[in-house]
């Protein structure tokens, strides 16, 4: 089966927005991702800066299942390894994001998406800063993407 094309971004975005809205109404809170990482890390070491949330841990388990199901149903499930240099950038970029997320107390999900929709000052500050940081470094990393 050949992989099906991705959904239209505005359709997928509306779906994502409705998921976020459902979370607001049903759980009284928004989505998150980095908080699941800090929760696991806080089980390994005791550090006051690491936010703990069982809710986020369960939610991220759902994200993995949902991502898997979507890829499976669309015929996009496939073990794909990038070249070593790209894998190094992926790992290093992840580590840098981890630092940024701990310092900011959230990531693209918990601050930009959730905070953005709830008009949180910190959510918008983080979102603008994250885009700015990415655009500033992008020219230097262009070759890593070729």
């Amino acid at each position: 089966m050949s992989p099906r094309p991705y959904s239209d971004p505005y359709v997928a975005g509306t779906g994502l927005g409705l998921v976020l809205l459902a979370s607001f109404v049903l759980a009284g809170r928004g989505l998150g991702a980095s908080g699941a990482f800090t929760t696991v890390a806080s089980k390994v070491i005791n550090a006051p800066s690491l936010h703990q949330s069982e809710w986020l841990l369960i939610e991220i388990g759902g994200v993995v299942i949902g991502g898997f199901l979507s890829a499976l149903l669309a015929g996009r499930l496939q073990w794909k390894v990038e070249r070593p240099s790209r894998m190094s950038f992926a790992f290093a970029g992840g580590a840098v994001m981890g630092l940024g997320a701990v310092l900011a107390r959230g990531c693209t999900s918990g601050l930009a998406l959730t905070g953005g929709a709830l008009l949180s000052v910190g959510g918008w500050v983080f979102m603008i800063a994250a885009f700015a940081g990415a655009y500033m470094l992008a020219p230097l990393l262009r070759r890593s993407w070729q």
Binding site: F89, A90, A92, G93, G94, A95, V96, M97, G98, L99, G100, A101, V102, L103, A104, R105, C107, T108, L111, G122, V125, F126, M127, I128, A129, A130, F131, A132, G133, A134, Y135, M136, L137, A138, L141, S144
Partner: peptide, 15 residues
Amino acid sequence: QLLGGLIFGAGFVAA
């Protein structure tokens, strides 16, 4: 959040 965002964004474009 301003500083964390800048750092996060740098990691984001690398990853």
